[in-house]
């Protein structure tokens, strides 16, 4: 029983140690690891596993090894960040395989890459003619990066239009019925705006599973109950309702204001909106 307990305690401590070491080493994706980092990862995992299972091993020696394998790569990555020559030495430099459509055979040999392997890598990126490649290089993480010749590059919107608007980022403002104020702030809208948008669709935040403001500033809503149909909002009808609501608010403020100057200002603005409704209404497409 005590042996099992010892294994449990050792394992829990080692898991916590592993967690801190992975936090310290940063969040590089596995594919972005250099060969050295990859080996370090495997070795640290192996030390942790052995230390956790083998009760005969000294915990002190194991932890020392564990810390050394965790901290030395950390120092190496810190120095690598500060020194380019050191980084090149540790992580290696990219090797050019193709330049202006010509394969550099010496570099292929240096990296022990056969022509077949190179063609296979190109095919994976939908390239079947070496002549179409302007530049290809093998990065230190083993990934082949390719730039196609200008004439062979796919057409983008930027090639056709000069003044394209920024793509923008969608923001998830409601998740599981909870409104996220930070997301609202990042999207540049207020809580009041969200309330109005929800009211237009006749839904409450707690009925919404997921709501996102897209790049155009439109709110897209996914309700818990998918069988519920949200009312389709006609733009002109909505504008008319909005104008009437604004008119009513201004009118109310003119009635409740105590200061005569304020009273008059609210009255004047309410009159302007009323006139606007009368003039603009014939140009709205409204359902009778």
């Amino acid at each position: 029983m005590t042996e099992i307990l010892a294994t449990v305690v050792r394992s829990v401590f080692i898991i916590l140690g592993l967690f801190f070491i992975t936090k310290l080493l940063g969040k590089k994706q596995l594919s972005k690891l250099s060969f050295f980092e990859y080996i370090v990862g495997i070795t640290v995992g192996d030390i942790a596993g052995t230390l956790s299972m083998d009760a005969e091993l000294s915990m002190r020696d194991g932890l020392t090894a564990f810390l050394i394998w965790g901290l030395v790569p950390l120092f190496i990555s810190i120095i690598s960040l500060k020194s380019k020559p050191f980084r090149d030495f540790v992580e290696g430099k990219p090797t050019t395989f193709i330049e202006k459509g010509k394969i550099l055979e010496d570099n292929l040999r240096k990296e022990k890459f056969s022509a077949d392997e190179l063609l296979e890598q190109l095919r994976k990126k939908d390239i079947f003619r070496v002549a179409d490649v302007e530049f290809a290089s093998l990065d230190s993480n083993g990934e082949l990066n390719i730039i196609l010749k200008k004439a062979k590059q796919p057409l983008t919107a930027g090639d056709l239009f000069d003044d394209l608007p920024e793509a923008g980022v969608p923001h998830a403002v409601i998740m599981d019925g909870t409104i996220y104020h930070d997301a609202l702030k990042n999207a540049g809208v207020s809580r009041e705006w969200l309330n109005i948008e929800l009211a237009k669709r006749q839904v409450k935040a707690e009925h919404v599973f997921f709501a996102q403001i897209d790049e155009q500033g439109q709110l897209n809503i996914d309700l818990y109950n998918d069988s519920l149909k949200m009312p389709e909002i006609k733009q002109d009808e909505h504008l008319l309702i909005l104008m009437k609501k604004i008119h009513a608010e201004l009118e109310w403020n003119s009635l409740t204001a105590k200061d005569p100057v304020l009273k008059m200002a609210y009255k004047e603005y309410s009159k302007r909106i009323d006139e606007l409704i009368t003039k603009a209404k014939p140009y709205f497409s409204l359902e009778e």
Binding site: S190, H238, L239, L242, I246, A280, Y283
Partner: peptide, 26 residues
């Protein structure tokens, strides 16, 4: 409902929305 900061803010949001909608119509 009396004139207060909260109501004025809400009214301002509505006005801004109306301005945007009118510019789209124009």
């Amino acid at each position: 409902m009396e004139e207060n900061k909260q109501n004025l803010k809400l009214l301002q949001v509505m006005i801004q929305e109306m301005e945007l909608a009118l510019s789209e119509k124009a």
